[in-house]
């Protein structure tokens, strides 16, 4: 049997909202350590890796390792029925072909239970190498979302150039061109508002902005986003999921031929 209970069910709903535009179905790997998921978009340009550690749940029980094929589209629809302060329990009974989502209101006066059929998915698992990135930019996730949205107006690709002083996002297309430059914050009251750059080497990489905008669907999970970059390496765009884990999106760069 697998059972995991989350007092703030809304966190799980935000995780699903963060994933479901990039991948519509995925295999969840459940073990004693927690839940992990790795999936690529249909064109194999981007990859998402999710980790939710067991100690982040109020209660967590996983008697044996399980691979659960789940439609994220359906799960998202079910989770929309959850109240914003509801407690969420995810359960898979032994020998069952369904996942049960139970939602309980804070005053314990309402209790809802939904079942979703599990799917047999062919999933390909990739080995993600440990990388010492040349540059890690940390910035408010709302700012990153706004920049990606704005860049998409100008063109299909965004070039991210990072130096020790700042990071520049630029795009050009048929309508024109533009760029936004952020300097490293020198003095901020709140850490979550800061832009910080750890840099070993300057980088300039070009990415499809459409994918960056999909990654930004996970921005409500975290005040800050980390962008890790090296030349000729996929971007890693990370949002923390509270102190229980993370969503890491990887995006293959575009190159000039």
């Amino acid at each position: 049997m697998f059972e995991a209970r989350l007092a703030q069910g809304s966190i799980f709903a935000k995780v699903i909202e963060g994933l479901r535009e990039l991948v519509t179905e995925a295999t969840w790997e459940c073990s004693g350590n927690g839940i992990t998921l790795q999936a690529m978009d249909s064109s194999h340009v981007a990859l998402v890796s999710l980790v939710l550690r067991s100690d982040g749940f109020e209660t967590y029980r996983c008697d044996r390792n399980m691979s659960l094929g789940i439609s994220l589209t359906s799960m998202s629809k079910v989770l929309k029925m959850m109240g914003k302060d509801d407690t969420l329990t995810i359960r898979v009974n032994d020998d069952s072909d369904a996942i049960v989502l139970s939602m309980e209101s804070q005053n314990q006066e309402e209790f809802a239970e939904y079942e979703l059929r599990l799917m047999d998915l062919d999933s390909e698992h990739l080995g993600i190498p440990d990388t010492d990135y040349s540059c890690v930019v940390k910035m408010p996730s709302t700012k990153f979302s706004r920049i990606c949205r704005d860049m998409a107006i100008l063109g299909d690709s965004v070039t991210i150039c990072s130096t020790k002083d700042g990071v520049k996002f630029g795009a050009k297309g048929d309508v024109g061109q533009g760029s936004i430059r952020l300097n490293q914050s020198t003095n901020v009251d709140k850490e979550e508002d800061a832009v910080s750059i750890e840099l070993r080497e300057a980088v300039a990489l070009t990415f499809a902005v459409r994918y960056l905008n999909m990654f930004c669907k996970a921005a409500p999970l975290s005040n800050q986003v980390n962008l890790s970059m090296s030349e000729d390496t996929p971007l890693m765009c990370e949002f923390k999921v509270g102190d229980m884990g993370h969503i890491r999106f990887y995006l293959a760069p575009k190159i000039e031929d």
Partner: peptide, 14 residues
Amino acid sequence: YIRQLSMHTFFVTL
């Protein structure tokens, strides 16, 4: 011309 690379260029299937 800008070419989009694939995840498979960088990460191998396990």
